[in-house]
């Protein structure tokens, strides 16, 4: 009794019965929605590509006038002066120094805040403190700029009398304060995502709260915590207003946070506010600086990606 029947694929889509006509329409709607969703997702990709294209294109014209070697080794950045120098390093050093100060402040404070909120605070405290902390991320950066210039720097000058009015320490700390909510909030989410069973395991071994938090929960959440640091680094490198206001706008090849300096973003905003003719070398220098900024951010993102992969824990 072998009656294997050949199943034939219908040669074209047919509506089986009027009852199912609705089904067909539903498929079309579904596809339109899918297309719209994809469009939204792609808009971010296209924007990124467009920015890269413009940056590379304008920088290309810039590098026709300035050699890449000079760009990377000249210790001066004075594109708007009579005697123009195009060495990006003073801006890079300013950017890195300020970001370093910011992270030296924000990483410990943010991480400890996250550990407290996730492992020690009562439910009520957490629900009160976290939204307030997140509100801090919504304060306009211009307010932080004047906060650095008019409050933090004068306070620091009481400790370090030689500190100039424009310096990198004050704005660095203020940017640190600004990114604490990012680190605290994202790290806290990562720590809360560690399953309770793992904490119970630690407590059952006789661990204290502190030991559980430090030796079990934090290592388990490390990939999320590193993600928070990366977010903070990108934010610190890209921060413009605070440094433009409080760090002075003199490109200065130094890693000493007590000096005044300019960052890449501060330079860009400074030039953009002047009236440079379109296509001039000064105008193009913005794009070269922007390209460097983007590469730096990209570098840290890639670094973060691999660090996260390395520490990735499955549970």
């Amino acid at each position: 009794m072998n009656t294997a029947t050949q199943v034939q694929e219908p040669s074209q889509r047919t509506t089986i019965s009027p009852r199912l006509a609705k089904n067909y329409r539903r498929n079309i709607t579904e596809r339109i929605i899918e297309f719209l969703l994809m469009l939204c997702a792609l808009s971010a990709v296209f924007t990124t590509i467009a920015i890269v294209v413009i940056l590379v294109y304008e920088s290309y014209s810039f590098f026709e006038h300035v050699s890449v070697f000079d760009f990377l080794t000249d210790p001066q950045w004075t594109p708007l002066f009579e005697d123009a120098h195009y060495g990006i390093m003073p801006l890079v050093s300013g950017t890195l120094t300020i970001s370093f100060v910011a992270l030296a402040f924000a990483v410990p404070v943010g991480t400890i805040a996250a550990i407290y909120l996730s492992e020690f605070a009562s439910h009520k405290t957490r629900e009160t403190v976290k939204p307030i902390l997140e509100l801090l991320a919504g304060v306009p950066t211009i307010a932080f700029g004047y906060f650095a210039l008019l409050l933090v720097t004068p306070l620091l000058q009481m400790v370090f009398p030689d500190l100039p009015t424009f310096n990198m320490l004050g704005p660095g700390i203020v940017i640190g304060i600004m990114v604490v909510p990012y680190i605290a909030s994202v790290s806290e989410d990562a720590m809360r995502a560690v399953p309770m069973s793992m904490r119970e395991g630690a407590y059952a071994m006789g661990a204290t709260r502190f030991q559980t938090a430090m030796r079990v929960v934090t290592p388990a959440a490390i990939s999320g915590i590193v993600a928070a640091y990366i977010l903070a680094i990108s934010r610190a490198i890209g921060e413009t207003m605070v440094v433009a206001i409080a760090a002075g706008q003199q490109p200065n090849l130094t890693f000493n946070p007590m000096d005044s300096a300019a960052t890449i973003t501060a330079y860009i905003v400074q030039v953009a506010m002047g009236d440079l003719p379109h296509g001039s070398i000064g105008y193009q220098s913005i794009f070269a600086a922007g390209l460097v900024l983007m590469l730096m951010t990209l570098f840290f993102n890639v670094l973060g990606h691999f660090t996260r992969k390395k520490f990735r824990e499955a549970y």
Partner: peptide
């Protein structure tokens, strides 16, 4: 309670090793 847990240990329903 920490002293109690040092004398009485526990194995859970689902294995819960630490990320170590």
């Amino acid at each position: 309670p920490i002293e109690v847990r040092m004398r009485i240990s526990m194995v859970f329903q689902k294995p819960n090793p630490f990320p170590k």
